[in-house]
């Protein structure tokens, strides 16, 4: 913990190693199936991974501050339903109100998590486990259990994220913009440095004038807002909204963070690593059918990758620990 500068070079080294690994995986698939590297296919891959990238970046902030957001997928589903119902009620309202609505509602739901963790110092896993159930239940109450189907959503609502610009969809571009913003902000902004410090050593951080709880609150709120707007994208992409959309997706998001090198104990992680983690999952997912492995293997492979990633990072940490130090 004390060797801060060393810590970052470790992160950079890990990111580079992981980038090489992802590139090797990509090259291997391309060598076997030249069609894989076709621009069309890659654009599709990015479009399929875009929501995961944005969610994982939000989740990264929360985990960096020593929290976890299990309610992220339920938040997404609730805001997605809100967006769908809004589109059904006001089909001519356009996309902007939907974006504002989902960002606001998602941010609010995230802020609820953050407030409980900050003001009452409740354990994040219990809080978000609870809000996960509550948000899911709220979708049912809101929709009365019914589906909102494609024909009930306005054309503009459905078309916006799929609209193509320079060969990539708006959704893909958004994920690129968000990723770039995260990479820059995490390195340049003071508040981001504060978040790293608060997660790395909350006590030391509070002595230097940072409120770790407030940092967590911010992280949860941003994560919630991202989840909310992704709810709209999810509903528009799959053209349907119902109670169970994205059920269990929170674990894929957390998996992407872990693969991307975010330390569950807080204080460490890079945006580039998380994006690479998402791309790694995306490449595996889209190459499975090419290799002739059933899509049912995806989850198993994800599990293996997570375990290898966390075992490796645990091994690295071990050298810096004394024998009887408490585990994080």
């Amino acid at each position: 913990m004390s060797a801060r500068p060393l810590h970052f070079s470790d992160n950079a080294r890990r990111d580079i190693a992981f980038a090489v690994l992802t590139a090797v995986l990509f090259l291997a698939v391309t060598l076997a199936f030249p069609g894989f590297a076709a621009p069309r296919n890659l654009a599709g891959l990015l479009d399929d991974t875009a929501i995961l990238i944005m969610l994982a970046l939000g989740q990264m902030l929360v985990i960096m501050g020593r929290g976890i957001d299990l309610s992220i997928a339920a938040n997404l589903a609730l805001c997605g339903m809100l967006a769908a119902l809004f589109s059904r009620a006001w089909p001519d309202a356009g996309v902007l109100p939907v974006l504002v609505l989902t960002l606001g509602a998602g941010g609010l739901l995230g802020a609820c998590n953050g407030l409980l963790v900050w003001k009452l110092r409740l354990p994040p896993i219990v809080v978000t486990l609870g809000t996960m159930s509550i948000y899911r239940g709220a979708i049912y109450l809101l929709s009365k259990g019914a589906w909102v189907n494609e024909n009930e959503m306005s054309r503009e609502f459905l078309a916006f994220p799929r609209h193509e610009f320079l060969g990539l969809t708006v959704l893909s571009w958004l994920s690129i913009v968000v990723a770039a913003a995260f990479i820059v902000a995490l390195q340049r902004l003071k508040v981001a440095r504060d978040l790293y410090a608060a997660g790395g050593n909350p006590e030391a951080a509070s002595y230097s004038g940072i409120d770790p709880g407030r940092m967590q609150f911010l992280a949860y709120t941003i994560c919630g807002a991202i989840a909310g707007v992704c709810g709209y994208f999810w509903v528009a992409k799959f053209a349907v909204a119902y109670t169970d959309i994205a059920l269990g997706f929170e674990l894929s998001v957390i998996a992407a963070c872990l693969i991307g090198g975010v330390a569950i104990a807080g204080g460490a992680g890079t945006a580039a690593g998380v994006v690479l983690g998402c791309l790694f999952i995306g490449i595996i997912r889209s190459s499975l059918p090419l290799v002739g492995i059933s899509a049912f293997w995806q989850m198993f492979i994800n599990g293996l990758v997570i375990l290898v990633a966390v075992l490796l990072s645990a091994r690295q940490r071990q050298f810096k620990r004394t024998i009887l130090e408490a585990r994080a």
């Binding site: 957390i254 998996a255 872990l258 293997w297 198993f300 994800n302 599990g303 293996l304 997570i306 375990l307």
Partner: peptide
């Protein structure tokens, strides 16, 4: 660890 094995076992 158990998020990993959960994915692995269910997978």
């Amino acid at each position: 660890a158990t998020i990993g094995t959960m994915t692995l076992f269910r997978g």
